[in-house]
Amino acid sequence: MEAFTTHTGRAVPLRRSNVDTDQIIPAHWLKKVTRDGFEDGLFEAWRKDETFILNQPERKGATVLVAGPDFGTGSSREHAVWALQNYGFKTVISSRFADIFRGNSLKNGLLTVVLEQKIVDALWELTEKDPQAEITVDLVEREVRAEGITASFELDENSRWRLLNGLDDISITLRNEADIAAYEAKRPSFKPQTLKV
């Protein structure tokens, strides 16, 4: 996983609430068996509309998505995170994320930043007025900065440490292999087993 320390980029202001994972990446894309190549499926239905914000030439190359509340509700598909990353987004800002989506994003190195809605509103206004305006998301300082806006955000220490170091979960867990083995040794015999018939 790629480490995330600080990132500066132009933004896509997405004024929609409750953007569910079916909108982020429709189900038919889930048939793919790789982790890349999802960029064309991102917001597929909305992108058919020429006026959709992502289709505006001045938004090309933007890397910061500023979304409405309850972003990422619905199914647990991690493809939603990959689609955002494949498209080029490094970070998503919203006042509220769905739990599973948030978990998936942090595990994949896509930093989801929770800010108060009034700050999201301010970022929308700024980046709608000036598509060239840049937003900096600084994980070291836990701060979002843009012209006239400075806002700090929370992220639990563990997620932050892993993102800063680009560490993936499995290698961290396997450092505690002895604990897993000890737990396994004392599991009761009545627990279900898939291979016993």
Binding site: S76, E78, G103, N104, D169, I170
Partner: peptide, 8 residues
């Protein structure tokens, strides 16, 4: 869970 967690 998500696919990364499935792998985990």
């Amino acid at each position: 869970i998500g696919t990364s967690q499935v792998e985990h």
